[in-house]
Amino acid sequence: MKQRHARTCRPKRPGRPPTVRSIRALILRLVRENPGWGYRRVHGELATLGIKVGPSTAWEILKQEGLDPAPERASTTWADFLPSQTDALLAADFIETITLNGQRQYILAVIEHTTRRVQVLGTTAHPSADWVTQAIRNLVMDLNDAGCRARHLIRDRDGKFPALMDEILAEAGIKTVLTGIRMPRMNSIMERWVQSCRHELLDRCLVWNERHLRHALREYEHFYNQHRAHQALNQAAPLRTVLDPITNPKRITDLNIHRRDRLSGVLHEYSYAA
């Protein structure tokens, strides 16, 4: 009699009862709307809503749907962001220098990640909000004329960048991405150009005044984009391809190389003599 009674009292489906369909749908909705959430974060959000569900239940539901319950499931790291968006990335920064007349000058430059082409937007002793926004407007027009499909611009948190600058870029479909505080490596390509500009130009050239600085920067911009070899581009330049290797032995034994000096010999360009 006891065994018969035990069989009649045994539930037809052993184990825990299935999760209510609405709760299951809510868990999947939370994960869909918050890709960075893991099962424990979802469990915490359910608790704030007064829904009593164990964290293991949330874990099982995500696994059944083929979703990784870990919170890093869909997070995007900075190392992943840069390669995935290279074709649509710009970077901007200010450079400071002092001319021989004792005036501090600020240089605003932008570089394209994919081509490494740099553009000096201007120099000024007083980088006001109006000056910066006008420089950015000119940049947006140049990008439109060139058909550039930039979608992000990386910059630091320098106070010389006004809020209106981000609004102008947003209207052009370019989202501003801020680097971390005191983390120049997050804008490494721009910082590398700044280092090259200082080492190859500013540290080797006596700049008299703002007019002279603008001339020197125009020359260096042309040199950097048209001639200077870049390791990241397999020794090509942003606007110059690499020549095919010389296979004719006679040409190798009789190399007629011409040197062109820029800025009175500060920069040297080498090419075959005509």
Rank of each mutant, 00 (worst) to 15 (best):
A129T: 10
T99M: 09
P55M: 05
G122N: 11
T8D: 08
V194W: 13
L89M: 14
T124E: 03
A172M: 12
P18L: 14
V42P: 03
L90C: 05
R198L: 04
G44N: 11
G180Q: 10
R211K: 08
T97D: 15
A170G: 04
M141N: 10
L201W: 04
P245I: 07
L255M: 15
W131N: 13
V20C: 11
T19D: 08
S56F: 01
H268W: 10
R40I: 08
G122H: 09
I252Q: 00
R260H: 15
R228P: 15
L178Q: 02
G147H: 03
A135Y: 02
E65N: 07
G102V: 08
T247M: 13
D158L: 03
L213W: 12
Q195K: 13
S196D: 14
R73S: 14
T114G: 04
R240Y: 02
F223M: 07
E167L: 10
L201M: 06
A125L: 00
G15L: 09
P55A: 14
P17T: 08
K175F: 11
T19M: 15
P83I: 11
G50I: 13
L243R: 12
P238G: 05
P238W: 15
L62N: 06
Q235T: 01
P11C: 02
Q3D: 10
H222V: 11
N234K: 11
C9F: 04
A88C: 12
L100Y: 03
H258T: 05
E221I: 06
V207M: 04
L89P: 05
E200R: 09
P238L: 10
G44M: 10
N144A: 09
G265T: 01
G173Y: 08
A6P: 01
T247Q: 13
M1Q: 07
T86Y: 06
P14Q: 13
V140H: 10
T247K: 14
P35A: 14
K250C: 03
V120G: 00
V20D: 12
P55D: 00
A150P: 00
N225R: 03
T176E: 07
A88N: 12
E72K: 07
G50L: 12
E96W: 05
T86E: 15
P17E: 08
P249G: 13
L49D: 00
S196C: 14
W208Y: 11
S75N: 08
R262E: 00
R151G: 13
H215V: 06
L263K: 05
Q235V: 00
L255D: 01
I136W: 01
C205V: 10
L46Q: 05
